[in-house]
């Protein structure tokens, strides 16, 4: 039914991992959207940048560590990962702290990218 239509989907992640389910669910939808052969971008803003912090150890909270999935996204042709520069800086983070390669963008670049999307999902 959806064959032949390619839309630009953007996933906007603004929540930290583990404190709520949104980061995990966002990954689920990203993977399914990629399976539908859509044009997928994933953006990390505000506390969403914590999702990409290296070194997550979740044994002590008895929750699955889903952070390795971000590195696996490339294998599903999800390669457009964008991080808001100001959100990183506000949290004392640099690209070195992140577990996957991303493109760091200024606010106005991110805004322009958002304005080009067909579907924007917030997590």
């Amino acid at each position: 039914m959806s064959e032949g239509i390619t839309k630009k989907f953007m996933f906007v992640n603004r929540t930290a991992p583990y404190g709520s389910i949104y980061a995990l669910e966002s990954l689920e939808v990203v993977l399914i959207t990629a399976a539908f052969d859509q044009d997928v971008s994933v953006v990390f803003i505000d506390d969403g940048v914590w999702q990409l912090k290296k070194g997550q150890q979740t044994k002590g909270i008895e929750t699955k560590n889903f952070s390795p999935t971000y590195r696996a996204l490339e294998g599903y042709d999800v390669e457009k990962l964008y991080v808001d520069r100001e959100s990183l800086a506000a949290r004392g983070l640099t690209e070195e702290d992140l577990l996957v390669d991303v493109v760091v963008m200024d606010a106005d670049e991110l805004g322009k990218l958002m304005a080009e999307q067909d579907v924007i999902l917030s997590f």
Binding site: R14, D46, L110, G111
Partner: peptide, 14 residues
């Protein structure tokens, strides 16, 4: 919350 502040900082004119 900071949702409005982030929107105003990042969103393109619209």
């Amino acid at each position: 919350r900071n949702a409005l502040a982030s929107c105003l900082r990042i969103a393109a004119p619209g």
